[in-house]
Amino acid sequence: MRTTHMIRTAAAGLLLGGALFATGAGTAVADDATPSPSASDTSGTAETAAAPGTGFRTAGHIGQGVTSTPAGASTGDYLYWVTPAKAGEILTVSATVQLPESASRHGAQTWQLDLYDGLRRHQACTAGKPTVNAAADAATVELSCRLRTVRAWSEAWANDPLPGAYYIRLTVVRLADQDLGLPVQVQLGTASKDAGGSQAVDGELAAPLTPVAKAGATLDPNAQPSPAATEDSGDSEDSEGTADPSASPVAAGLAEPDGGWGGGWWSDRWLWTAGGGVLGALAGVAGYNLTRGRGRRPVA
Rank of each mutant, 00 (worst) to 15 (best):
Y166C: 02
I7K: 12
G275C: 08
P298M: 04
S68N: 06
D32C: 09
P163S: 09
Q178T: 10
T96F: 11
A243D: 09
D77C: 12
A200W: 03
R105Y: 07
G293A: 15
L188G: 03
Y78L: 15
A46P: 01
R297P: 00
E101A: 08
E204Y: 04
A176F: 04
W261Q: 04
L254Y: 00
Y288K: 04
Y167R: 00
R2L: 09
A135C: 11
R148A: 12
D244E: 11
L119E: 08
G65L: 07
T3H: 05
L254F: 03
W261V: 04
T291L: 15
L254G: 00
V285Q: 08
I62A: 06
L147Q: 07
D114F: 05
A283Y: 00
D232I: 13
R148P: 02
T210D: 13
A51R: 06
P84F: 06
R169Q: 10
D160C: 02
D232P: 01
A274R: 08
A300Y: 06
T131H: 01
A243H: 07
S226R: 10
C125R: 03
A12F: 14
A274G: 14
R174M: 02
A28W: 14
T96V: 14
G18V: 13
G234F: 04
T110V: 06
S94Y: 05
S94L: 10
S198K: 05
V278G: 02
T83N: 05
L219W: 13
T58S: 15
T69R: 15
Q109Y: 06
A243M: 12
P37N: 09
R292W: 11
L91M: 06
L14N: 01
S192K: 13
V173W: 12
V66D: 01
S36M: 13
E256A: 04
D194P: 01
T34N: 02
V278S: 02
G72F: 10
K86Q: 11
R146Y: 00
L290C: 13
T9R: 15
L219R: 15
W81Q: 01
V278W: 04
L147K: 01
K86E: 06
P130E: 11
C145V: 05
L113P: 00
V173S: 11
L16F: 03
A206Y: 12
S198Y: 02
P249S: 13
T149P: 00
A283E: 00
L20H: 02
G287K: 08
H5T: 15
T110H: 01
A12E: 13
L147M: 10
G128S: 11
G197N: 11
E89T: 04
D32L: 15
T67G: 07
N159T: 15
T54Q: 14
P84L: 12
L180C: 06
E256S: 01
P227D: 11
G44W: 08
A191Q: 02
P211H: 10
A251Y: 04
G287F: 10
A281S: 12
T4D: 08
G128I: 13
A152N: 11
Q199A: 14
G13S: 09
R2C: 03
S246C: 04
G18P: 09
N222A: 07
E204P: 00
A95W: 00
A33G: 05
G277F: 12
A283Q: 00
T3K: 07
P35S: 10
E101V: 01
G259Y: 08
P225F: 11
W266E: 03
A59G: 09
S68I: 08
S144G: 06
L188E: 03
G189F: 07
G253C: 09
S198A: 11
A274Y: 09
P225H: 12
S267C: 07
G234Y: 02
